[in-house]
Design a protein around this nucleic acid. Sequence first.
DNA 1: CTGCGCTAGTTACTTACATCA
DNA 2: AATGATGTAAGTAACTAGCGC
Length: 225
Amino acid sequence: MAFLDPINSSNLDLSISMPGVCAVRELDMNRVPAEGEAEADWARGQSVEEEGEEESSINNNNGGTQPRKKLRLSKDQSRLLEESFRLNHTLNPKQKEGLAMELKLKPRQVEVWFQNRRARSKLKQTELECEYMKRCFGSLTEQNRRLQWELEELRAIKVAPPAVVSRHNRSQPPLSRSTITICPRCERITSNKNTVAENATTTATAMQSEVVLSALKLRQPSRAC
DNA sequence: CTGCGCTAGTTACTTACATCA
DNA sequence: AATGATGTAAGTAACTAGCGC
């Protein structure tokens, strides 16, 4: 996800602006004014091609009196760096030297680029994981809410006195107190024959509860009940 | 102990874009 | 409507401190 400026991508854009100055001055960061050279002349700016790229800025701040100069990598430099990064997220000193030579940068600049690139990569990964966790949390919260509600219902049925069997539902046996249990160890809803837990919804719910509970326990290894 | 390379956090700068007179 | 000045947010090069080997 390199930042590529389509306008200034054809060559190195090594200009700086001067904060606090009304008009933004474009300065060539790749060179310092020569002895006696008027700053205005220096500030007029020259292309890297004209001036050569060996003087790229890094650690050239001569005592902090000048504003920090900042390089903008060209499209080609960024592309090559990205390609290298794809192959390898870290560089050994030899690779770093070679890449720096190829890019006409200082090894330190290549090193810094890789450091920053790793950081961006990690940040991106963290953001993706965060999004994923948020979605999981949302759906698990909803599942949990449903399961709580179903659990309440099941508990109500469990503690209720034997149901009065009406003329219309005599074919269904009354629910037994012993039919619905919750395993204290794994908190799984279990049942004997002829229970409400036998119906499809509750079976699904039991499965869901397992998922939810295991998720809420931060994926502790599940033990056989 | 020293040096090197790394990460994490920060700073400083550039650029694109929005807003307003 | 077009234009230039200004503010702001995002992206990123460079720096610093601290840590592990």
